[in-house]
Amino acid sequence: MTISNIPVGKMLTVLLSATLTFALSLNVACAADSKKTMNKSTPLTQAYVWYDGDREQRVWLNPQVVAEFNPGAEGESAMKSAYAGARVVPTKHKQAAVRLWQLDSTAETAIRSLRASHPQGNYSVVLHDAPVSTGRMRALPGNVIVYLDPQWNQAGVSNWLSARKLEIVKKLEIGPNIYVIKTGPGLEALETANALYRSGEVKAAFPDWWQEVVPR
């Protein structure tokens, strides 16, 4: 697949109707065997961009997987009670901070519903670094990492944050004026990061991604 000739501008939600139809039909076809979905190379069509420094990167939405952050006991999860068909995605090396759920329904719809019924929960769509479901996974537990002008003093940083009604979660000691900024989980974090980057006011802005990393 060639992707260099696909125009990518703003945060895109490129979703052609033909591919949507195809994807939906795939979803239905895969629903009965969705436990295997993460191991099969299922094509993904809905792409988003983000900015790793100055480099534009693309990720693809997995339409049927939801990441639940800081999950409690599996049996007590709101996901389980709201979606009887929800199954935990088996992973060889699990991270305690996240549980991945495979749904029979659409992830984004499920997340909207869960946020309404269980606002204390932390849910995100799952995205992949390639347009197939075997690509490296990412999700959005919330917050954005911003690289501000290293020449700014503390007052400058505070003024900028205040003007944009942004709140620091913590300072990262990996260079001057690098902060984690508070946002909600899910695509809100991606949208905020992209908006900050495109504003031209920051050196870099990207979501505080959760990423798939494993012990060796």
């Binding site: 991270q95 000691e173 991604w209 990423q211």
Partner: peptide, 18 residues
């Protein structure tokens, strides 16, 4: 860090206690 693999955590783990 591998229990909570966010970007900010991996950066923190590389410099914590530096």
């Amino acid at each position: 860090f591998l229990q909570n693999g966010t970007v900010s955590n991996e950066a923190d783990a590389a410099t914590r206690g530096s």
